[in-house]
């Protein structure tokens, strides 16, 4: 068993995570949350700081592929684990298909909830390529949006799902 000491003058501890595909070693005080370390120590401010009590969903990241609230995970608990944030969604050719669909349909207005929605939606589509509207409503129920009324968000995820399905079909036709 190892021990990581804290206290008002606590020494920082070191942890190594994989963040958006890259290995990152970072030092922080033992009681800091994943959200705090991502934003304050790694400068990854795409993950938003909302209620900080697990009620709004805007701080969602993928931890080993599963959506979790980074405000309710200790940085220490992420040793050796894979973390994906909104910064990891875009590729060399620009925004991801989900991000493009959000922009096209106005699924982001003030934008504060958008990173959390995008990451949950990535997780949903990875498991269920063509979710029903009812499934989407349930799967996105842990994320609050006070601007859009949610409909455009559901439509954007459905558009991305449809394009992925068409893309897969086209690849199939070309034998790829």
């Amino acid at each position: 068993m190892s021990e990581q000491a804290a206290g008002p003058t606590a020494r920082r501890v070191q942890a190594t995570w994989r963040v958006n595909g890259e290995s990152v070693t970072v030092a922080f005080r033992p009681h800091r949350t994943l959200l705090e370390v991502l934003r304050e120590d790694l400068g990854l401010t795409g993950t938003k700081h909302g209620c900080e009590l697990g009620e709004c969903g805007t701080c969602t990241v993928l931890l080993d592929g599963e959506p979790v609230l980074s405000c309710l995970v200790l940085g220490l608990e992420c040793e050796g684990r894979e973390i994906r944030t909104v910064e990891g969604l875009a590729g060399p050719e620009g925004p991801s298909d989900l991000q493009r669909a959000f922009a096209e349909l106005g699924a982001a207005q003030c934008g504060y909830c958008t990173p959390g929605f995008l990451l949950v939606a990535e997780h949903v589509l990875a498991r269920e390529p063509r979710p029903t509207r009812a499934q989407l409503v349930e799967e996105l129920s842990g994320n609050l949006c006070r601007c859009t009324g949610y409909l455009k968000i559901y439509e954007a995820v459905e558009r991305a799902a449809q394009r992925r399905a068409e893309g897969a079909a086209a690849e199939g036709r070309h034998g790829g």
Partner: peptide
Amino acid sequence: AFRFLRPRTLAEASEALRREPGAVPKAGGV
């Protein structure tokens, strides 16, 4: 701030809880 112990087994966790009165076990901890 707190001290954070990381046992590898449930037996080690119990041992840590016995040794440290007032220690709190944290699983998901939400």
